[in-house]
Nucleic acid binder design. Structure first.
Lengths: 239, 239
DNA sequence: CTTGTGGAAATGTCAGACATTTACTAGACT
DNA sequence: AGTCTAGTAAATGTCTGACATTTCCACAAG
């Protein structure tokens, strides 16, 4: 694989990093492939070697690449990617054709984890957590009608789930909020968002909110599972 | 806080990063404090500005620091730390006096997550997963007797739990194996490792192994909970 | 067949100058 | 007095060129 298929770029090393990362995430290179050399990348995109090195440092930290002096830069296999790195979430979020294997893996994780998190949230939620959830829910509701507000709706959707993770009041679970954004964005992108499915999704979110507000852990668990079942349908994972 | 209290260092930027990170993790600086300037760090440790910048890049990527041109380097608050970053695990592993709040947070996470993971592992485990678990269990057993083999025992303990996460065959859960090392190391460091508690721990691990081997998800869940109850006692979280 | 030696090619490191951003200070003007 | 506006200092960010180090490979000597 060469660099020729990649679009031009404009801006600093972060833009370059995003560009290269998304090419990797889209599978333009196979695991074990040698990645282009620093100087070639710099020449192709007309940036300094510094910028290239900064970008590659990010990709290496995210587990996408493996660099060794003398040998060059190799592409690591999917199992080694740091899916929980916030940078990864950012890169995945803007990607339209995310690898279906990844989408399914993230969904499977959420399906096993989020009920537990919702249960913890029901136990640990404070007033401010409830307020965050209510505010996000209200946003989802108000942006549910129009088609052009689907980006806004997605943001509120992300905010709702992130608020759930934060409400667990656990430092580790809280970190995983990052993972939600690409998952939900993929959801929004694939689903048609017909009015009935949106209403259904909204109702299920409300169940979660109510259960957490009344500190009912087991109700929160089952309600979270129901939300994710709806998600699975919209993602095309089950029918 | 100044740099004077830190031990000297020897080696590349990674060593320096570890040193500074461990100082941060130990709470030598408060959130919001200004971190020493690049040139001062370089002067103090007699390294080039490049090394310092490389080290600080790692700390920034891990969410420990926030850097802005003109203002300087600030220490971020605990909630922003990327606890799931593998580098963080590496830094925490070698730290003797880990913040008890962190130890408890990681333990609470494991207590809520690991039963689920064990359940998934029971459903998804292949032959090679079982073999990994058995090999780790055998290592734990063989190194259980002697006191001087406690480091070796810890490695097998880590390997056992890591194998459990891997056996879930989920790309996201698999990433979390990193988090186990500092947790288990803290455990080893604090517990006296008397023979009876070791035997008890071993027996509970065996329950998990058996449940996964026989693909009994709910048995694996309860067995994992039992392992973690033993862990909680040894960590001094409950009595 | 093995071993060693040299060179090519890649990433890693260094040093210095310069750019950019930020915060603060002093002064002019109203 | 108060407020806006240069101007300056100080920090991180960037560029450039040279050099160091590691790795691989080819080729020749034993």
């Amino acid at each position: 694989m060469t660099l020729d298929a990649l679009p031009p770029h404009q801006g600093g090393a972060e833009q370059l990093a995003r560009l290269l990362a998304q090419a990797l995430l889209a599978g333009h290179w196979q695991p074990g492939d040698v990645f282009p050399r620093e100087l070639d990348i710099g020449k192709h995109f007309a940036v300094s070697r510094n910028q290239v090195r900064n970008a590659l440092t990010s990709l290496t930290a995210a587990g996408l690449l493996e660099r060794t002096a003398g040998r060059g830069t190799l592409v690591r296999e999917v199992g080694d990617w740091h899916l929980l790195d916030p940078l990864m979430s950012e890169w995945m979020t803007g990607l339209v054709n995310l690898d279906p294997q990844l989408v399914r893996a993230i969904y499977a994780f959420r399906f096993s984890a989020e009920p537990v998190v919702a249960g913890l949230a029901a136990q640990a939620a404070q007033t401010e957590d409830i307020e965050r959830l209510e505010s996000a829910y209200a946003g989802m509701k108000s942006s549910a009608g129009s088609v052009e507000a689907r980006a806004e709706h997605a943001e509120y959707d992300v905010a709702f789930h992130d608020a759930t993770y934060r409400a667990s009041h656990n430092l580790v679970w809280r970190q995983m909020g990052y993972l939600l954004r690409p998952s939900i964005m993929a959801l929004i992108h694939r689903s048609q968002h017909r009015t009935d499915t949106l209403d259904d999704s909204l109702a299920r979110h409300r169940q979660v909110l109510d259960a957490i507000r009344s500190h009912d852990a087991s109700a929160a668990e089952t309600a979270a599972r129901e939300v994710l079942r709806r998600t699975a349908i919209d993602l095309g994972i089950v029918s």
